[in-house]
């Protein structure tokens, strides 16, 4: 085949070039992506509606829901095999899940991680979605600004509640910790006061619900005051070493302390003077 030199054969040879299969895959992907980009705007009609301020919150929320949530939670939030119903979870759950980037979930891992927000996730979009889900069957509402104001809480009282209720999973400063089956208690440092309140009120993922009769709204505010106070604190003893306790301390003792001393020992004994005895 090679060596006859006519054009048909040269096309065949190129087709069998080692890079040919990558070129084909790249082309296919490009077509698919481009096609999707052209076909996708169906979802953004809701965004357009919000932008123009035509529909009311619930209706806008519904269309956002259909675009971004319904594939797992069902067209009417009735739940599917993949995801639970959202009837009755309340606006607080929507705000927590969407504003932390956990929902819409990227993939079906043991736990949805906090991640950067999608472009469509504006405060307005969250308000609309929350209004829609709230309209389905009530549930915990989002806290008012003064309910989560750390300045109005008592950090000492909050600390006691925090130690009694939270640290067994989240660690003593909210640095996070491991749970079973690949789940984990996330660090509390990136969470806003509102998100902390909503997490307690709604019990997302592996977390239990701490409703208002278990921990009153005032107590929740005290806990928020403690959490935010401690995480803003400058460590008085130097570097906090991740604030996870003796594990990093032991590493530093061996890797920094002992290594420096061994280097010193090598240096001291490098020069020798010999005497017999």
């Amino acid at each position: 085949m090679i060596g006859t030199g006519n054009s048909v054969n040269s096309i065949t040879a190129r087709r069998r070039h080692p890079l040919a299969r990558y070129a084909v895959v790249a082309l296919a992907l490009g077509l698919l992506g481009g096609g999707y980009a052209v076909a996708a705007p169906g979802g953004s009609s809701a965004d357009a509606a919000i932008a123009s301020g035509k529909a009311d919150d619930v209706a806008q929320g519904k269309s956002l829901f259909v675009a971004h949530c319904a594939s797992c939670h069902g067209m009417n939030a009735e739940g599917t095999a993949k995801a639970p119903t959202l009837v009755g979870v309340g606006a607080a759950a929507v705000d927590f899940q969407v504003s932390t980037g956990r929902m819409p979930a990227a993939d079906a891992g043991p736990q949805a991680p906090r991640k950067p927000l999608g472009e469509w996730v504006t405060p307005q979009a969250i308000d609309d979605l929350a209004a829609y889900v709230q309209s389905l069957g009530g549930g915990p509402a989002r806290p008012a600004a003064e309910q989560v104001d750390p300045a109005k809480g008592d950090p000492a009282k909050g600390g006691e509640l925090f130690r009694a209720n939270c640290i067994q999973c989240h660690n003593f400063v909210g640095a996070g910790g491991a749970l079973t089956y690949g789940k984990y208690a996330p660090p509390l440092n990136p969470a806003t006061p509102t998100q902390i309140y909503e997490a307690m009120a709604t019990g997302p993922q592996a977390m239990p619900v701490f409703n208002d009769s278990t921990i009153t709204p005032d107590q929740k505010r005290d806990m928020i005051a403690y959490i935010t106070h401690v995480r803003q604190q400058v460590d008085p003893g130097g570097s906090g070493l991740g604030r996870i306790g003796p594990v990093t301390e032991g590493l530093v003792a061996w890797i920094v302390g002992l290594s420096l001393l061994i280097l010193a020992a090598i240096w001291i004994t490098a020069k020798k003077r010999r005497t017999h005895a």
């Binding site: 600390g159 006691e160 130690r163 009694a164 640290i167 067994q168 999973c169 989240h170 660690n171 003593f172 400063v173 640095a175 996070g176 910790g177 491991a178 208690a185 401690v230 460590d235 008085p236 003893g237 130097g238 570097s239 906090g240 070493l241 604030r243 996870i244 306790g245 003796p246 594990v247 301390e249 032991g250 530093v252 003792a253 061996w254 920094v256």
Partner: peptide
């Protein structure tokens, strides 16, 4: 330069409380 055993972050001992990541010294 390196903080060790920040007891103020751990809080006082009560038998009812326990923190995630409780470890002994190395």
């Amino acid at each position: 330069f390196a903080q060790i055993n920040p007891i103020w972050l751990f809080g006082p001992y009560t038998p009812a409380d326990i923190s995630a990541g409780s470890q002994p010294d190395f």
